[in-house]
Protein backbone atom coordinates (compact mmCIF):
# COMPACT_ATOMS: atom_id res chain seq x y z
CA UNK A 1 0.00 0.00 0.00
CA UNK A 2 2.78 2.42 0.93
CA UNK A 3 4.61 1.42 -2.25
CA UNK A 4 1.48 2.28 -4.26
CA UNK A 5 1.34 5.70 -2.60
CA UNK A 6 5.01 6.44 -3.27
CA UNK A 7 4.68 5.41 -6.90
CA UNK A 8 1.63 7.68 -7.28
CA UNK A 9 3.44 10.64 -5.70
CA UNK A 10 6.54 10.19 -7.85
CA UNK A 11 4.42 9.92 -10.97
CA UNK A 12 2.41 13.00 -10.09
CA UNK A 13 5.52 15.07 -9.41
CA UNK A 14 7.22 13.92 -12.60
CA UNK A 15 4.41 15.42 -14.71
CA UNK A 16 5.57 18.81 -13.52
CA UNK A 17 9.30 18.06 -13.65
CA UNK A 18 9.04 17.16 -17.33
CA UNK A 19 7.37 19.38 -19.88
CA UNK A 20 4.52 16.95 -20.58
CA UNK A 21 2.40 18.07 -17.63
CA UNK A 22 2.51 21.75 -18.56
CA UNK A 23 1.91 21.03 -22.24
CA UNK A 24 -1.14 18.91 -21.43
CA UNK A 25 -2.57 21.53 -19.08
CA UNK A 26 -2.08 24.22 -21.74
CA UNK A 27 -3.70 22.01 -24.39
CA UNK A 28 -6.69 21.29 -22.18
CA UNK A 29 -7.12 24.97 -21.27
CA UNK A 30 -6.94 25.93 -24.93
CA UNK A 31 -9.50 23.36 -26.07
CA UNK A 32 -11.82 24.08 -23.19
CA UNK A 33 -11.40 27.84 -23.71
CA UNK A 34 -12.52 27.53 -27.31
CA UNK A 35 -15.56 25.51 -26.30
CA UNK A 36 -16.45 27.87 -23.45
CA UNK A 37 -16.19 30.84 -25.81
CA UNK A 38 -18.57 29.13 -28.20
CA UNK A 39 -20.97 28.27 -25.37
CA UNK A 40 -21.39 31.85 -24.27
CA UNK A 41 -24.18 33.26 -26.41
CA UNK A 42 -25.72 36.68 -25.59
CA UNK A 43 -29.31 36.36 -24.40
CA UNK A 44 -29.02 32.61 -23.69
CA UNK A 45 -28.72 31.18 -20.15
CA UNK A 46 -25.13 30.98 -18.89
CA UNK A 47 -24.35 27.28 -18.96
CA UNK A 48 -21.41 25.06 -19.75
CA UNK A 49 -23.68 22.26 -20.87
CA UNK A 50 -22.27 22.24 -24.37
CA UNK A 51 -18.74 22.11 -22.98
CA UNK A 52 -19.39 19.10 -20.77
CA UNK A 53 -21.35 17.34 -23.49
CA UNK A 54 -18.33 17.42 -25.75
CA UNK A 55 -15.89 16.34 -23.03
CA UNK A 56 -15.79 12.92 -24.61
CA UNK A 57 -13.96 14.45 -27.59
CA UNK A 58 -12.05 17.05 -25.58
CA UNK A 59 -10.50 14.50 -23.25
CA UNK A 60 -9.98 12.07 -26.10
CA UNK A 61 -6.74 13.84 -27.01
CA UNK A 62 -5.71 15.02 -23.58
CA UNK A 63 -6.10 11.89 -21.42
CA UNK A 64 -4.02 9.58 -23.68
CA UNK A 65 -1.27 12.20 -23.59
CA UNK A 66 -1.32 11.92 -19.80
CA UNK A 67 -1.38 8.13 -19.71
CA UNK A 68 0.98 7.32 -22.60
CA UNK A 69 4.20 7.61 -20.61
CA UNK A 70 3.08 5.89 -17.41
CA UNK A 71 4.57 2.46 -18.12
CA UNK A 72 5.93 2.84 -21.64
CA UNK A 73 8.59 5.25 -20.40
CA UNK A 74 9.56 2.93 -17.53
CA UNK A 75 9.98 0.14 -20.05
CA UNK A 76 11.95 2.28 -22.50
CA UNK A 77 14.37 3.64 -19.93
CA UNK A 78 14.67 0.32 -18.09
CA UNK A 79 13.54 1.75 -14.75
CA UNK A 80 10.82 -0.91 -14.81
CA UNK A 81 13.60 -3.28 -13.70
CA UNK A 82 14.45 -1.34 -10.54
CA UNK A 83 10.74 -0.86 -9.91
CA UNK A 84 10.01 -4.55 -10.53
CA UNK A 85 12.76 -5.66 -8.15
CA UNK A 86 11.56 -3.41 -5.34
CA UNK A 87 9.04 -4.87 -2.93
CA UNK A 88 6.15 -3.26 -4.84
CA UNK A 89 3.69 -5.79 -6.23
CA UNK A 90 2.48 -5.49 -9.82
CA UNK A 91 -0.88 -4.36 -8.42
CA UNK A 92 0.77 -1.62 -6.39
CA UNK A 93 2.64 -0.50 -9.52
CA UNK A 94 -0.51 -0.44 -11.70
CA UNK A 95 -2.64 1.35 -9.13
CA UNK A 96 0.16 3.69 -8.09
CA UNK A 97 0.70 4.76 -11.69
CA UNK A 98 -3.04 5.13 -12.16
CA UNK A 99 -3.60 7.30 -9.11
CA UNK A 100 -0.59 9.45 -10.00
CA UNK A 101 -2.17 10.16 -13.39
CA UNK A 102 -5.59 10.70 -11.82
CA UNK A 103 -4.20 13.27 -9.36
CA UNK A 104 -2.68 15.03 -12.32
CA UNK A 105 -6.01 15.02 -14.15
CA UNK A 106 -7.68 16.64 -11.14
CA UNK A 107 -4.92 19.26 -11.05
CA UNK A 108 -5.44 19.86 -14.74
CA UNK A 109 -9.10 20.68 -14.11
CA UNK A 110 -8.30 23.24 -11.42
CA UNK A 111 -7.32 26.15 -13.71
CA UNK A 112 -10.62 25.76 -15.60
CA UNK A 113 -12.09 27.42 -12.51
CA UNK A 114 -11.05 30.64 -14.29
CA UNK A 115 -13.84 30.04 -16.76
CA UNK A 116 -16.32 29.83 -13.87
CA UNK A 117 -15.10 33.17 -12.52
CA UNK A 118 -15.53 34.62 -16.00
CA UNK A 119 -19.03 33.20 -16.22
CA UNK A 120 -19.90 34.56 -12.77
CA UNK A 121 -18.72 38.03 -13.83
CA UNK A 122 -20.70 38.20 -17.06
CA UNK A 123 -23.78 36.20 -16.07
CA UNK A 124 -25.51 34.25 -13.33
CA UNK A 125 -24.76 30.58 -13.97
CA UNK A 126 -26.58 27.62 -12.42
CA UNK A 127 -23.87 25.75 -10.49
CA UNK A 128 -25.81 22.47 -10.16
CA UNK A 129 -25.22 21.21 -13.73
CA UNK A 130 -21.70 22.62 -13.64
CA UNK A 131 -20.86 20.50 -10.57
CA UNK A 132 -22.33 17.34 -12.11
CA UNK A 133 -20.59 18.21 -15.36
CA UNK A 134 -17.24 18.27 -13.56
CA UNK A 135 -18.09 14.97 -11.88
CA UNK A 136 -18.76 13.53 -15.32
CA UNK A 137 -15.44 14.82 -16.64
CA UNK A 138 -13.56 13.25 -13.72
CA UNK A 139 -15.31 9.90 -14.18
CA UNK A 140 -14.72 9.99 -17.92
CA UNK A 141 -11.09 10.90 -17.27
CA UNK A 142 -10.78 7.91 -14.93
CA UNK A 143 -11.95 5.62 -17.69
CA UNK A 144 -9.70 7.15 -20.36
CA UNK A 145 -6.68 6.96 -18.07
CA UNK A 146 -7.31 3.33 -17.14
CA UNK A 147 -7.44 2.28 -20.78
CA UNK A 148 -4.43 4.48 -21.54
CA UNK A 149 -2.51 2.82 -18.71
CA UNK A 150 -3.21 -0.61 -20.14
CA UNK A 151 -2.00 0.45 -23.60
CA UNK A 152 1.06 2.00 -21.99
CA UNK A 153 1.92 -1.35 -20.43
CA UNK A 154 1.99 -3.01 -23.87
CA UNK A 155 4.77 -0.99 -25.45
CA UNK A 156 8.01 0.92 -24.93
CA UNK A 157 6.85 3.58 -27.33
CA UNK A 158 4.77 6.42 -25.94
CA UNK A 159 3.39 7.33 -29.37
CA UNK A 160 2.09 3.80 -29.83
CA UNK A 161 0.46 3.95 -26.40
CA UNK A 162 -1.10 7.32 -27.27
CA UNK A 163 -2.44 6.20 -30.65
CA UNK A 164 -3.66 2.85 -29.30
CA UNK A 165 -5.74 4.59 -26.64
CA UNK A 166 -6.97 7.17 -29.13
CA UNK A 167 -8.06 4.50 -31.63
CA UNK A 168 -9.72 2.48 -28.91
CA UNK A 169 -11.99 5.36 -27.95
CA UNK A 170 -12.49 6.59 -31.52
CA UNK A 171 -13.74 3.15 -32.48
CA UNK A 172 -15.97 3.11 -29.41
CA UNK A 173 -17.26 6.56 -30.33
CA UNK A 174 -17.97 5.58 -33.93
CA UNK A 175 -19.58 2.30 -32.90
CA UNK A 176 -21.90 3.96 -30.41
CA UNK A 177 -22.91 6.76 -32.78
CA UNK A 178 -22.74 6.02 -36.50
CA UNK A 179 -22.49 2.27 -35.88
CA UNK A 180 -25.55 2.17 -33.64
CA UNK A 181 -27.63 4.10 -36.17
CA UNK A 182 -26.51 1.91 -39.06
CA UNK A 183 -27.09 -1.39 -37.26
CA UNK A 184 -30.51 -0.44 -35.88
CA UNK A 185 -32.37 -2.56 -33.33
CA UNK A 186 -31.42 -4.50 -31.28
CA UNK A 187 -27.72 -3.61 -31.63
CA UNK A 188 -28.26 0.07 -31.02
CA UNK A 189 -29.70 -0.80 -27.59
CA UNK A 190 -26.61 -2.79 -26.61
CA UNK A 191 -24.28 -0.16 -27.97
CA UNK A 192 -26.11 2.48 -26.00
CA UNK A 193 -24.87 0.79 -22.80
CA UNK A 194 -21.33 1.45 -24.00
CA UNK A 195 -22.04 4.97 -25.16
CA UNK A 196 -19.96 7.44 -23.18
CA UNK A 197 -21.64 10.38 -24.92
CA UNK A 198 -25.09 9.47 -23.65
CA UNK A 199 -23.79 9.20 -20.08
CA UNK A 200 -21.94 12.51 -20.38
CA UNK A 201 -25.14 14.17 -21.59
CA UNK A 202 -26.88 13.21 -18.37
CA UNK A 203 -24.06 14.66 -16.28
CA UNK A 204 -24.08 17.87 -18.35
CA UNK A 205 -27.83 18.21 -17.81
CA UNK A 206 -27.32 18.06 -14.04
CA UNK A 207 -28.53 14.50 -13.59
CA UNK A 208 -26.61 12.22 -11.24
CA UNK A 209 -27.38 8.65 -12.20
CA UNK A 210 -25.76 6.12 -9.88
CA UNK A 211 -25.55 3.59 -12.68
CA UNK A 212 -23.30 5.98 -14.64
CA UNK A 213 -21.01 6.45 -11.64
CA UNK A 214 -20.82 2.71 -11.05
CA UNK A 215 -20.21 2.10 -14.76
CA UNK A 216 -17.22 4.45 -14.94
CA UNK A 217 -15.65 3.33 -11.67
CA UNK A 218 -16.07 -0.40 -12.24
CA UNK A 219 -14.82 -0.33 -15.82
CA UNK A 220 -11.85 1.87 -14.83
CA UNK A 221 -10.78 -0.46 -12.06
CA UNK A 222 -11.23 -3.37 -14.37
CA UNK A 223 -8.74 -1.86 -16.84
CA UNK A 224 -6.25 -1.03 -14.08
CA UNK A 225 -6.52 -4.64 -12.92
CA UNK A 226 -5.88 -5.79 -16.47
CA UNK A 227 -2.74 -3.62 -16.43
CA UNK A 228 -1.54 -5.33 -13.24
CA UNK A 229 -2.11 -8.68 -14.94
CA UNK A 230 -0.28 -7.46 -18.02
CA UNK A 231 2.71 -6.59 -15.80
CA UNK A 232 2.51 -10.00 -14.15
CA UNK A 233 2.37 -11.64 -17.53
CA UNK A 234 5.51 -9.80 -18.63
CA UNK A 235 7.33 -11.31 -15.67
CA UNK A 236 6.13 -14.80 -16.46
CA UNK A 237 6.73 -14.73 -20.15
Amino acid sequence: MTACWHIALREYASFFRTSIGWVVIALYMLLMGIWVARAIIPGEPASLRAVFQTSQILLLFVAPAVSMRLLAEERRSGTIETLGTSPASDWAIAFGKYFGALFFLLTMLAPTGLFLILLEVIADPDYGPIATGYLGVVLLGMLYLSVGLLFSSFTQNQIVAFLGTLFFFLILLLATTIGATALGEPWSEYLRILSLGARMEDFARGVIDTSHIVFFIVISFWFVSLTAMSLEFRRWR
Binding site: R17, S77, E81, P87
Partner: peptide, 30 residues
Protein backbone atom coordinates in the same frame (compact mmCIF):
# COMPACT_ATOMS: atom_id res chain seq x y z
CA UNK B 1 13.04 -8.42 -3.00
CA UNK B 2 12.95 -6.73 0.41
CA UNK B 3 16.24 -8.51 1.22
CA UNK B 4 18.00 -7.64 -2.03
CA UNK B 5 19.83 -4.55 -3.11
CA UNK B 6 20.15 -4.69 -6.86
CA UNK B 7 22.04 -2.51 -9.30
CA UNK B 8 20.96 -3.51 -12.83
CA UNK B 9 23.45 -3.51 -15.67
CA UNK B 10 22.20 -0.33 -17.35
CA UNK B 11 21.67 1.45 -14.00
CA UNK B 12 18.37 3.01 -15.11
CA UNK B 13 17.38 6.20 -13.28
CA UNK B 14 14.65 8.82 -13.66
CA UNK B 15 16.50 11.73 -15.29
CA UNK B 16 14.04 14.37 -14.10
CA UNK B 17 14.50 13.58 -10.40
CA UNK B 18 17.08 14.98 -8.01
CA UNK B 19 19.51 12.67 -6.21
CA UNK B 20 17.81 13.27 -2.86
CA UNK B 21 14.34 12.96 -4.40
CA UNK B 22 15.21 9.64 -6.01
CA UNK B 23 16.67 8.22 -2.80
CA UNK B 24 13.58 9.41 -0.90
CA UNK B 25 11.38 7.63 -3.42
CA UNK B 26 13.38 4.39 -3.16
CA UNK B 27 13.28 4.61 0.64
CA UNK B 28 9.49 4.90 0.44
CA UNK B 29 9.24 1.98 -1.99
CA UNK B 30 11.16 -0.21 0.42
Amino acid sequence: RQRLGYLPEANPLYPEMSVAGYLRYRAGLF
